[in-house]
C-alpha cells in the first residue's frame, strides 16, 4: 500500500519538523502551537494504525485540553519570558547525550526481530470501541486499572488544586 506509506512518511516528517521547531522556538506560545501540530500528527498516525478511537481521544484530550492548559500556564508567567525564553548554555552537552541515547535506541530496536515484519491486518469489521469498553469493566480484563485510573484522576485533581489554588490571606 504505497499511498498509505506516503501519508505515513509525510506525517512522520511533519511530526519531527514540528517537534524540532517546538524545542527551538524562543517564543513560548509559538512553541505551544508547534506542539499542537506535532500532537495532531500523532493522531494521524493513530488513524493509519486503524485506531480511530485513540485518534479522536488524542485530539480531544491533547489538543483540546492539555495544550490549552499549557497556553494558560504560559500566560500566567511574565510577559518577557514569553517573548524570549532563557537559553540554557549547556545545550551542546544535552544534544550529544540525546543523540547518543537516540542512536542506542535505534540499534536496540533494530535488533528486535518483529521490527522487520509487517503488522498483521486488523479485523475492522469488529467494533473495537465496544470491545475496549467490555475489556475495561470485565473482571478478567482491566477492571482494577479502570477503577484505579478514576482514583488517580481524583488524586491528580486534588493535588493540582492544592498546588494551583492561591493562598488565602491571613493563613
Amino acid at each position: 500500500m504505497t499511498a498509505m506509506q506516503g501519508v505515513f512518511l509525510f506525517t512522520a516528517g511533519l511530526i519531527l519538523w514540528a517537534a524540532f521547531m517546538m524545542v527551538t522556538r524562543q517564543n513560548l506560545v509559538h512553541a505551544a502551537f508547534y506542539l499542537i501540530l506535532a500532537l495532531f500528527g500523532v493522531s494521524i498516525i493513530f488513524v493509519l494504525l486503524d485506531a480511530g478511537f485513540l485518534a479522536v481521544v488524542q485530539v480531544l484530550v491533547y489538543i483540546g485540553a492539555i495544550s490549552i492548559i499549557m497556553i494558560f500556564a504560559v500566560m500566567l508567567t511574565r510577559g518577557d519570558v514569553i517573548e524570549e525564553a532563557p537559553v540554557n548554555k549547556n545545550y551542546g552537552w544535552a544534544l550529544v547525550l540525546a543523540a547518543l541515547f537516540a542512536f542506542g535506541l535505534i540499534i536496540l530496536i533494530g535488533q528486535w526481530p518483529a521490527v522487520a515484519s509487517l503488522a498483521g491486518e486488523i479485523d475492522t469489521s469488529r467494533d473495537l470501541a465496544a470491545e475496549l469498553g467490555v475489556a475495561l469493566v470485565s473482571p478478567e480484563g482491566f477492571v482494577i486499572p479502570f477503577e484505579v485510573a478514576s482514583v488517580l484522576l481524583l488524586a491528580a485533581l486534588v493535588g493540582a488544586l492544592m498546588v494551583a489554588r492561591p493562598q488565602k490571606k491571613g493563613k
Partner: peptide
C-alpha cells in the same frame, strides 16, 4: 466514533 469525533473537532474551535 462519530459522536466523540464531534466533540474532538470542537477543540479546534477553541484553538
Amino acid at each position: 466514533v462519530g459522536v466523540l469525533y464531534i466533540a474532538a473537532v470542537g477543540s479546534f474551535g477553541i484553538l
